[in-house]
Design a protein around this nucleic acid. Structure first.
Lengths: 342, 342
DNA sequence: CTTAGCACTCACGCTATTAGAGTGCTAACT
DNA sequence: AGTTAGCACTCTAATAGCGTGAGTGCTAAG
């Protein structure tokens, strides 16, 4: 639906004023906020119409108007002009992030903290995943007579390790067999290809040694699976208290403890390069329907790898935060890419 | 100070009733709760005296009594009888924790979640630290022409890795030099011994190769430092909302974001084997002075390594939670020990 | 189509009142 | 001495009543 220019102006003003103050906006307040050469009565008429069309709502008869979900949507899609981050702020963020390096998880934690502080929102992010990643290196480090640590590194830079117990004592023979199997059947393969079926056929082919080595192989399969799993990182939880009431904040925190819902939300709404916005009930989770979600994918080495997201009230400052988030995903992407390539 | 037997009975009853209900306890309620062969007037007189002695407080004149901090302290030290966990619950917890294995961090996260659910408290824990740990293995994995991942493993099972960029292209020569330096000067040494001074003298002794190899050495020093650092793990944050009010919960969450205060608290109050209890203002941090802290150290391989703690209201259920926490630290200790020894 | 004017609505803050829980004190009792 | 019944007193929490004021929708005139 296309609104008249004046209605658009009024809608935008209501949205922005409400985002800024959190108070329902009346016709008079609005008028002095946006300086239009009309009277408050005219504004009132327009606002009444915007209400009828579903873009504005009234908490109660004698209060001002607040944007409806549809109102926010129209604003985000057509009215908002984005406020780019000032350059000095960009530099500051770069400085804060340049000191960390290391595992993706740490980089995302740091970026999440920075973003949470900057936006006053809760920040969620997923660790990079790369379906084409292959296993690059496998190490077996003996720790004791019956225990060893297995380390697995993938081409996308993910490192996982796990301690493993064996029934038989670890001797040179077992280790040699292990390394042979590893280099022949695992190195160079995609982690996704490592199935339990493969482990079983492998164990069979080893005959007598099968029993001794199978705990190691099982651990290897576990590790392969772990490198595939994306992890959800959550920062700035305390910011949830800023907007929702007690009950709601608790529910939200419990909801976010489980990483599956958000991860799947990110997957289904994955968009190429663009920043996504889900306002209120536009997402399918009850706990999140009083919130808005802004999210953006980052890419490592030119490929979409993971997502950063902001969770805030529906009256979140879209115009400012969308560019901020976008900027941070770019930085995160470039830092992660740096780690992997020359 | 030693109270009369009857006063002790009354104090214990007030504490327990208040912990159970959260409501100030009056003389009449108390009487029917604990079935004493006296009248409410007698109880009232005793309670008035307990107030004068500082063990009970009144929120206001016409309300019942609640325990003061001193009252809780007396209760915890002398009156409380501990409720051991029922056996089936113990088995359930063992089952939940037996599935995980791997890095200490993951084990503590899992244990923290279990404990948070069990106690309705926020759970903090520190990863194991071992001053006597020595560097056991160092690996250099080339990722690109100018980047490599360095992996360090200590005798206490801590694994850390980091990506490192070099100015010069990585060739066999550099790698060989690196491995030589690593095995001669790092392997077998305590991580704490690796200082920046050592790095500098090493770099000097390498002469021409110094420039090429120094980024690798610096990363090595960083890693050594990282293995020394204990990490604070926090679970069940949402439980903070159960007791403190809005403002307070926010402050608490912000306070816990920084791991230093709690870590230092654990260090200064470290007790051998015993479970520690800090009630209200007994700790030195303003943000925590409306809360109680129950903590207990776990040991890996017979040595004190880290601490688990519960954060809850001062009216936390001491009698039940102290044994629960104690039990969990034992389990955590034994799981972590399992990983390291035969 | 715009605007001044006006009656109307309804949340919010204030005060007054009430009900009830719990106390401390006194005086009688054992 | 310690215990107990009785009672006046205190103070909170809940409820109701009452202006106040911001904001509205409508009407009628410009």
């Amino acid at each position: 639906m296309q609104l008249s220019e004046r209605k658009e102006k009024i809608l935008a003003a209501v949205v922005e004023h409400y985002i800024a103050t959190g108070e329902p906006v009346g016709s008079k307040t609005l008028l002095e906020f946006m300086k239009m050469p009309v009277s408050s009565a005219t504004v009132r008429n327009e606002m009444a119409e915007l209400s009828r069309l579903g873009f504005l709502e009234q908490p109660h008869t004698s209060a001002g108007r607040i944007p409806s979900q549809q109102g926010y949507r129209y604003y985000v899609d057509r009215l908002m002009n984005r406020y780019e981050m000032p350059l000095n702020e960009k530099r500051l963020i770069e400085a804060k992030l340049s000191t960390v390096s290391g595992e993706p998880q740490q980089i995302l934690e740091q970026a999440g903290q920075v973003l949470a502080e900057l936006t006053n929102c809760a920040v969620v992010s997923t660790t990079p995943s790369d379906e084409n990643a292959v296993i690059r290196k496998i190490e077996l480090v003996p720790l004791g007579v019956h225990t060893a640590m297995i380390i697995m590194l993938t081409s996308s830079g993910i490192l996982k390790s796990r301690v493993c117990r064996t029934d038989a004592a670890l001797n040179m023979d077992i280790m040699e067999t292990f390394y042979n199997v590893a280099s022949q059947h695992f190195i160079g393969k995609a982690a996704a290809e490592v199935s339990t079926a493969l482990i079983q056929t492998l164990a069979l082919s080893l005959g007598a040694k099968a029993l001794e080595i199978s705990p190691l192989l099982v651990t290897l399969a576990d590790l392969a699976q772990m490198t595939e799993q994306t992890q959800l990182i959550l920062e700035g939880q305390s910011n949830l208290l800023n907007y929702s009431d007690y009950q709601n904040a608790y529910e939200l925190m419990e909801f976010l403890r489980n990483s599956d819902p958000i991860t799947s939300l990110f997957l289904t709404h994955r968009q190429k390069g663009e920043t996504g916005v889900l306002i209120g009930k536009e997402n399918r989770f009850r706990e999140l329907q009083d919130s808005s979600l802004i999210f953006s994918g980052y890419s490592v080495g030119g490929k979409d790898s993971g997502t950063l997201g902001l969770i805030g009230p529906t009256r979140i400052d879209y115009a400012r935060l969308i560019p901020s988030l976008k900027y941070l995903t770019e930085i995160v992407g470039s830092i992660l890419s740096d780690n992997l390539e020359d």
